[in-house]
């Protein structure tokens, strides 16, 4: 943001970036700092709030707990919940990816004026709140809902298929909530894709699947990576789908964090969980960044080893 080079054309002086820096600190960094600080403090008298006394207890609690029977031992509960969240986020990102590539490619190959309309349609779900949209799925997936109603009406099933309040419903809700975040960046990449490259690949003897894998996917990779990040990270912290569609039976990490600031009254622990989420998110981003760089280096490498 701030460059040491002075007088370069169009760069202005260093303080020209000050408002941006200020917003960055005030709106992004400051809340994070508060969370990190809270995670190293002690609980307030009745658990609501914090006491300004340094403690690493919240972090110990992440892995060790006094079990209900009283011994202090390694406790995988929170790791398991992290694992759950991770799994859900991964499945969500994967399903979104599989659905988005064909959708985005299809839109990108429409005439320019229709593309605008289609992209506009993709964004329509954003017009209503996620809560309402999630409730809509309660109706859709219900035992008495339209899907079971239809299947029953055509005689495909005699008993309703239980869909609501299952992990399946959670995934459906998550995928629905985050699908546009995958479609849009992939579309942005696909729209720039030069379809003559696909023709060239066909011409060189590549069948459809190979063209997709070797030519199209590398070209839309920036969109895919952006989409994966945009879906995976918020899915990791999602809150509504597991509660409302999953029936609240499998917590995701956000549900546990919310409880710490509510009925469980353990703010420092909630903050520590948040820091963990933050760390995991950063790790995931790092993995993505390394992956992206290595992939681009791989294809750019002159060494024959890579090819062969």
């Amino acid at each position: 943001m701030i460059t040491k080079k002075r007088g370069a054309a169009g760069q202005g002086s260093w303080w020209a970036g000050a408002p941006g820096l200020f917003y960055l600190i005030a709106l992004v960094l400051a809340p994070l700092v508060v969370i990190v600080i809270y995670s190293f403090l002690s609980r307030a008298k009745l658990g609501v709030g914090v006491k300004w006394e340094f403690s690493i207890a919240p972090y110990v609690e992440l892995f060790y707990s006094e079990s209900l029977s009283g011994e202090r031992s390694f406790d995988p509960t929170y790791l398991q919940i992290f694992g759950n969240s991770f799994l859900y986020a991964l499945i969500t990102a994967g399903v979104c990816l599989l659905l988005s590539i064909p959708i985005a490619m299809w839109i990108a190959t429409r005439p320019a004026d229709r593309r605008t309309t289609l992209i506009f349609l993709v964004t329509i779900p954003f017009w209503t709140s996620l809560l309402i949209r999630t409730y809509a799925f309660i109706i859709i997936l219900n035992d008495n809902g339209p899907i079971n109603g239809f299947l029953g009406a055509i005689g495909a099933i005699s008993m309703p298929i239980p869909m609501l309040y299952t992990p399946f419903a959670t995934v459906v809700g998550l995928v629905y909530a985050f699908l546009p975040f995958m479609i849009l960046p992939i579309y942005a990449s696909a729209e720039r894709f030069d379809f003559r490259l696909a023709e060239a690949a066909y011409d060189l003897g590549a069948a459809k699947w190979t063209v997709l894998r070797r030519i199209v996917l590398p070209a839309i990779r920036p969109g895919i990576i952006a989409g994966l990040v945009l879906v995976f990270i918020p899915a990791l912290g999602s809150f509504l789908a597991p509660e409302l569609l999953g029936g609240g039976k499998t917590s995701m990490i956000a549900n546990v964090i919310a409880a710490q600031f509510g009925a469980s009254r353990n703010w420092p622990f909630g903050a520590a969980l948040s820091v963990m989420v933050l760390v995991i998110t950063l790790l995931v981003l790092l993995v993505f960044a390394v992956l992206a760089r290595r992939m681009s280096r791989t294809s750019g490498r002159s060494s024959w080893e890579v090819l062969l």
């Binding site: 490259l197 060239a200 003897g205 590549a206 294809s299 002159s302």
Partner: peptide
């Protein structure tokens, strides 16, 4: 229509 993500060698080797 050279594949931009591949080196010259890999472009030629593709076919």
């Amino acid at each position: 229509a050279l594949f931009p993500h591949m080196t010259v060698e890999r472009n030629i080797a593709f076919g």
